[in-house]
Write a protein that binds this DNA or RNA. Structure first.
Lengths: 110, 110
DNA sequence: TAAGTGTATTACCAAACGTTAATATAAGAA
DNA sequence: TTCTTATATTAACGTTTGGTAATACACTTA
C-alpha cells in the first residue's frame, strides 16, 4: 500500500475518470442505506434466503423485499430460487471487497 | 422451515454492531453523490480552496458550496480561512482511507 | 470610502426516496 | 382442490434531496 496515490501532485486526483466516479457513487449509494448495508453485511460471502435476511435485519418482509430489489437491479445481488425460497448472495466482486474494507475502517474491535 | 443457511454460520457477520452500521452508512451516504465523491477525490490528501474545487469539479459555486457544507457538517471535511479564501481538506481519517480503497476497487489500473 | 473577488445562505421547486398496507404470485402440503 | 408459506409488487403518502437563482456576507484593494 502506497500513500503516494493520496499525495496528489499538481492537478492529479483520485478516481479521475468520470465513468469511475459514476460507477463508484452508484455503488456507494446502494450501500448507504442502513438496512441495505445491514443486508450486505448479513450476506457477506454466504447465501441467505429472504426470510433469513428478514429475521436478521429486522423489518417487514415487504420492506426487505424492496431493498433486495434495489440491490438486485443495480447488479449488486444475485439470486437463486430453490423450491419456494429465494436465496440471495453478493454477486458483485467489487461490492464484496468494499464491504470487507468497510469492516476494516469502521469496526474498531476486530 | 429453519434458516439453516443463517444458523450454520451464526457468528459470522460483518459490521455486526448497530452503531457501526449507522456510522458507516452515514459516511457512505455523504460520499455517494457524484459531485461530493468528485470533491473528495479532488481533495485527496491536499488542501484546495473553493474556487479550485469549483474549477475542477465543474458546477456552480453555489452548488459546490452547498455540497461542501454537507461534507463539513458531517465531519468529513475541515476548513481553514486564509484572507478571503477558504481551503478545504479531508479531515476525517476514515474517509481518507475509504477514498483510497475506492480507488483500488473502482479504478482499472491504467 | 467604493468596487471587486471569494464564499455562504436562502427560497423555491421538482424529483427521488422510504415506509406501510394491501394485494398478487408461486410453490409446497394436506 | 384448498390451505399455507415464501416472496414480490403496487399504491399511497410524507420526507428528503438536489439544483437554480438570487442575495448576503467577508475580505481585499484602489
Amino acid at each position: 500500500m502506497e500513500t503516494e496515490a493520496l499525495d496528489a501532485v499538481d492537478g492529479e486526483q483520485l478516481l479521475a475518470h468520470a465513468a469511475d466516479i459514476e460507477i463508484a457513487s452508484r455503488s456507494l449509494k446502494a450501500m448507504s442505506h442502513p438496512l441495505r448495508l445491514k443486508i450486505l453485511c448479513t450476506l457477506g460471502s454466504r447465501e441467505v434466503c429472504v426470510q433469513g435476511i428478514v429475521d436478521n435485519v429486522g423489518t417487514s418482509q415487504s420492506n426487505i423485499s424492496q431493498h433486495l430489489a434495489i440491490l438486485r437491479d443495480k447488479g449488486i445481488l444475485s439470486s437463486r430460487k430453490d423450491a419456494n425460497k429465494v436465496f440471495y448472495r453478493i454477486g458483485d466482486e467489487r461490492t464484496l471487497r468494499l464491504i470487507g474494507m468497510m469492516q476494516e475502517v469502521f469496526c474498531s474491535t476486530d
